[in-house]
Nucleic acid binder design. Structure first.
Lengths: 187, 187
DNA sequence: CGCGCGATTGAGTAATTTCAAATCTAGTGG
DNA sequence: CCACTAGATTTGAAATTACTCAATCGCGCG
């Protein structure tokens, strides 16, 4: 179950059995059905979520009801409305399940407690955040520099499995093109 | 001089005089003229840079020679090619001075040493990275959801001083529109 | 079988880019 | 003080790209 979390930790820092038990005691588990919401607009967002299995999306719905996807999260990824989570403000994003999903929930309080108690956990989250920052910079460059067709090809290459696991409409909402345009790109 | 760095640190964690001296001993100082390069494509990137004063840009130049700006950095900001810096690989970005600039340089080795030695410094960098992550997510949403005109207005509101300090061409390259389009938006 | 969701296709429209030319501005040297 | 130049900005017009709206197609499931 939670071995997947331990594996991710150990990619950055070794943890003993008892350390891992201690860490894990700060998480709670949650199972969700397809289409179930994890975060809704204007909710408070107490938790960051580590995906054990399943698939989720975090999206922003604008005034016209148009949906833009900020991130997906499959096994071994983290997801939440980070702006609302870190600042303890209300969610502007909606997070829901594309597939039946199980997540481990980490409250901000427990995250900060773990970071304060265990230097290696603070190290782990710093490393993860740095890597995430670099990934977002790459996505921004892709949005600035690449055409719709190029972004489509990049997505296909970078996330071949995700591409299979969800309707193309969602990929269009992630890449920033209409579903019709995306459809015409496949050629 | 370096009081500006101390102030930034103390927004997140208090530091004593001797702690700050110790921290500062891990930085070197560098002064640059307008148009001087801090990082060039294919360089190794040993340092992250904290801006004491001045103004820089980090940009990606594509095959057609077109320039896209990933970030600006004025006083109190950090800048480098983070992908190259964290992974110790070659730069894909170019960083140069829009104004005469003074920076404090922090090598990856010294950064990791500081983080290992002082838990509060690791905490500081984690917090900074988290805040940066959220800021990049906001920029991605802006690119996905907002029109050129809206992005222009957002920039103007968010960075009114930057807007004054550089040619509009650069703002266009940051927002992802041509300079001609940007010009037409001012109306 | 037929419903419903997702994907595709067509046609017209809107936004932005490109290329070219004109205009403006600040700084320089006479 | 003025003329000159380089860089920055603006404007125009044509071309491109992607969007919207509407209709159609395809397929899996009850």
């Amino acid at each position: 179950m939670s071995e997947i979390l331990r594996k991710q930790l150990e990619k950055i820092t070794p943890v003993t059995d008892s350390e891992f038990d201690y860490i894990l005691s700060h998480f709670t588990s949650k199972k969700l059905k397809k289409h179930q919401f994890l975060v809704q607009e204007d909710d408070l967002v107490p938790n960051d979520f580590f995906v054990v299995h399943g698939l989720l999306k975090a999206c922003f719905v604008n005034q016209d009801g148009k949906e833009h996807i900020l991130q997906f999260a499959a096994e071994d990824w983290w997801i939440t409305d980070y702006q609302a989570y870190f600042n303890q403000t209300k969610a502007t994003l909606t997070i829901d399940c594309i597939e039946p999903t199980e997540v481990l929930c980490l409250s901000l309080y427990n995250r900060e407690k773990l970071c304060a108690d265990m230097h290696k956990i603070e190290h782990f989250f710093r490393k993860k955040s740095n890597a995430g920052y670099v990934a977002l910079q790459r996505r921004i460059l892709s949005l600035l520099n690449s055409s719709a067709k190029e972004r489509y090809d990049q997505f296909l290459q970078q996330y071949p499995t995700l591409f299979q696991r969800m309707p193309k409409t969602l990929i269009a909402a992630y890449l920033g093109v209409s579903r019709e345009t995306l459809s015409r790109l496949s050629a």
